[in-house]
Simulated scan of single mutants.
Amino acid sequence: MHSILQGKHLITFDLDGTLIDSVPDLAVAVRKALHEVALAAPDEDAVRDWVGNGAQVLMERALRWALNSAPEESLQTAAYEAFMRHYGMAPNALTQLYPGVEQALRALNGEGYRLALVTNKPKRFIAPILSHFELLPLFTLCIGGDTLSEKKPSPIPLLHVANQLDISPSASVMVGDSQHDIVAGKAAGFTTIALPYGYNHGEPIQSSQPDLLIASLVELVE
């Protein structure tokens, strides 16, 4: 195990951009939702830059792109509901695990670390996605963006996990791909580990000054 895990008992992970590349499926759902409200649809690269703050913000960004202005509330609601419906129909059609994810999670679980998931994705999608990859049993607790009153970059979801599992923040780690993960982790008193391959709105994750930057999760278990 990597030396940064010495004395740690809880490892929390982000989902999109950290464990899975979900943008292909998200982009399909965004395009179908915008088609329903008679708006132009973006390409996959555009959607990749919009992911990370939850489904509501994703659709708001998509609508702003299509309209070149802020959407009216009724349009925002209609587009969001359409997105949730389409994404819920096929959240795993094109989504893939990043290389080394399954190996690392199973090794960490086997070493006795408590694993938790803290994502801004709506909670209803977490279990179907993790179950698809046969990873759900590895996680003790899963928190979605709509589970609590606040989501990342707030530290509240991370502190909630630590409290629920009775583990000190100083013995906890946050692993993610975006500034929201690192900001939340630092504010919660967690050690922060960043991955450079995910979704960080075009900004290098190094600028968030994580405690450790790794190219792959397998670096934690080698």
Rank of each mutant, 00 (worst) to 15 (best):
P204W: 03
L165T: 06
L15I: 02
S208I: 00
V221H: 04
T192I: 11
G198N: 05
K151N: 05
D49N: 15
L165Y: 05
N200P: 07
A215C: 07
L130I: 11
A79R: 01
L217N: 00
I20D: 01
A66F: 12
R85G: 09
A46F: 13
A162E: 00
Y113W: 03
V101T: 04
N109C: 08
F139N: 10
R124W: 04
A162W: 01
E36S: 15
A90R: 14
V101Q: 00
I193Q: 00
V175I: 14
V183E: 13
K121Y: 02
E73V: 15
K123C: 09
A90N: 15
L148D: 09
G176F: 01
H9R: 15
L217V: 03
A38G: 14
D166L: 13
P24N: 04
N68M: 15
G145H: 06
I193S: 00
H132N: 08
P153I: 06
G112V: 03
Q56E: 12
E222R: 14
R114G: 00
H180M: 12
E73W: 12
E72C: 12
I20L: 11
R31H: 11
I167E: 06
S178I: 10
S149K: 14
N163E: 13
R64Y: 06
V183Y: 06
E72A: 13
P137T: 09
R114V: 06
L97W: 02
E60F: 08
K151E: 03
G110M: 09
F125G: 05
G17K: 02
V57S: 07
Q56Y: 10
N200Q: 06
S168F: 10
Q209I: 08
Q209W: 07
I126N: 03
Y199V: 08
E219H: 10
Q56R: 13
F190R: 01
L117R: 02
A127E: 14
H86T: 05
P91Y: 04
D177G: 08
N163L: 11
E44C: 12
T140Q: 14
Q209F: 10
Y113G: 00
K151R: 14
R124Q: 13
L165Q: 09
G88S: 08
P169R: 03
F190P: 00
H9M: 13
G202A: 06
Y197F: 15
